[in-house]
Amino acid sequence: MFVRRKPWLMLTPALLFLLLPLYGLWSALWNSLTPDGEVTLRVYSALFSNTEFLFSFFYSMWIALISTILSLMIGWLMTRFFLFYLENTGGKLAVWLPMIFPHFVWAYLILLLFREGGVISGFLPGDPAFANDPQGIGIILTYLGKEIPFVILMLLPVYLERNRAYDDLVETLGGSFLSRIKDAEWPFIAPVLIETGLIIFAFTFSAYEVPALVGATFPEMISVFTYDWFYSGDWSERPLAFAAMVSSSAFIGIVAWILLFFMNKKRRNITEGL
């Protein structure tokens, strides 16, 4: 009996921990569905016909996508080509260091360096502003600074534990450097890379502090936009804020589900086929 009950026992902390966000999500959903005490989709139809919201939604998607893809690419290239240096303690420390700064500290740093007249942008011709800019470059730079080390730390163990004999195998079978990356590396790192990308995307899509600090007044990312609705003097906008939160969560959930669905079979082949 004890053995049968054990998995549940071990999952209890995780389940308890999940209760909070699940309750939050449920409460947001309930509030958005019952603006006047009765269940209606009125708020959602209002939300999705609101052009400002839609613009903010796609703007967030764009910023999150760019941040995610650049972080993954740069993080992967750095892990791949500097593995030798990253393996030792000094290298690991160098990657860990940016990890310990909170996002808002990094955002302040970007602000100091890249705002109009900032330490770096002041030296550039034309004194361009890369913080609080409508293109979202400040947001993207902040996220890159924080997420590239994250990508490296996620990939490092995979690269260290990867069977390097596959490189030799591809070479003896006639493969080039590129085929080595494609067939001896990529299949093994892809699951971790995609999972990491998912985490980064979910975070950058909906996090508040960074766009609030280094974002522009227009366009706003979805988190800032929703926050404004939530705390505006007009209480009638609260259900809209809730609906926007639920929609963002649902969107992230769907993206995650699709990616994991396609990854799982491949991952099973890889983990059990070695």
Partner: peptide, 19 residues
Amino acid sequence: KANVRQVSLVFQEPLLFPH
């Protein structure tokens, strides 16, 4: 170079591509 040499190597482990 190894990738143009007509020599093949079979390793201790099968090293099949799992995917």
